Simulated assay, not measured.
Amino acid sequence: MHEKNRKSFFTALLNFLLPPHCHVCGEFIPRAGRLHICSSCRERMPAPTQPICPICGIPFQGAGHDHPCQSCLKHPPHFHAARAALLHEGPVRDLIHAFKYNARTHLRRPLGLVIVEQLSDFVTGWRPELIIAVPLHVRRLRGRGFNQALLLAELLAREWRIPLQRQTLQRVRWTEPQISLTAGQRRENVRDAFRVKNASLVSGKRVLLVDDVFTTGSTVEECSRILMQAGTGELLVVTVSRVAD
């Protein structure tokens, strides 16, 4: 049997034995595709739309052209560009919460694939040479059992065929959860929390940094600062979603 026909056969068999259901609403999906999210739920997962800041990717309200936001003009980040596949609202917010805090690690597939769906053209245009995930402190990793950013990065590395480096960027200082902190507190919370283990691995390289959510950007900015200090050539950040205000 031809390889393509074999894959189609086994996919059809699996769908017969385990009918696909929407990850969001649980409804049966006759033609689920790779995301396994029904069209109704997918419509409630909007992507950031132009105009946006070409640096951090935050969308602006109304018409016009892309232009840098006031925050990026006042405090230019160390990353060259950041993009999110979706806005952090509705079903995607619920999926990320379940993935991250309820150990539903199988959700890394639809969340990772939506990044591929929305951002492949942008990422391939940058031609990154390696992927790095935002690391967790060992204490939090033991408590959670997995690093959600690394699970996403593994999928993206396979889809885009970009090498993944797992131990290059390390979290060396414990930080409090960012969720209840102000933007200023978030920046201070993660200050000097990361280090690059072997700078030669990133020196002069175009690096793709992966995380789950872009809120204020303080975590990816601190990671970017450390990576650029280590000699990274260009740095692009991608996340599943971002907070729009």
Rank of each mutant, 00 (worst) to 15 (best):
W174I: 15
L141E: 02
T49R: 15
V196F: 06
Q61I: 13
E27P: 09
V24C: 00
W126P: 14
A98V: 06
G90P: 06
T219K: 02
D211W: 02
S180W: 14
L111P: 00
V134W: 01
E176P: 06
H21N: 15
A85C: 04
W174T: 15
N102Y: 08
F194C: 01
G204W: 10
L150Q: 11
E117H: 09
T105Y: 12
S8E: 14
R139T: 12
R104G: 05
G33D: 07
F60L: 03
C25A: 05
R166K: 12
V123K: 03
R108H: 14
C22S: 08
R225L: 09
T215Y: 09
E221G: 13
C223Q: 11
D212L: 01
F99T: 00
M45P: 00
I162V: 06
L130D: 03
V243S: 14
T124P: 09
V243H: 08
P91I: 00
D192S: 07
A157H: 02
V116E: 13
I131D: 06
I55W: 08
F9V: 06
K7V: 13
A32Y: 12
P19R: 08
H21T: 15
P59L: 03
Q229I: 12
A82C: 08
P177T: 05
P54N: 02
V240W: 04
W160R: 03
T219Y: 05
L209T: 05
G112R: 00
Q165M: 13
V240E: 05
F122I: 15
L18I: 14
V92T: 00
H67P: 07
P76Y: 06
F10R: 09
V24L: 01
P135Q: 07
R173H: 05
A153D: 00
A133K: 04
L141T: 04
S8C: 12
G125Y: 01
H137Y: 07
K7P: 07
C223V: 13
G26K: 11
V240G: 02
L227P: 02
R195F: 13
A133D: 01
K4F: 13
P91H: 01
L201T: 09
L95M: 02
P48C: 04
F16D: 15
M228E: 14
A149P: 02
L13Y: 04
Y101G: 00
D192A: 09
P59H: 02
G233D: 10
L87T: 07
E3Y: 14
A157Q: 01
T215Q: 03
R104W: 08
F146I: 07
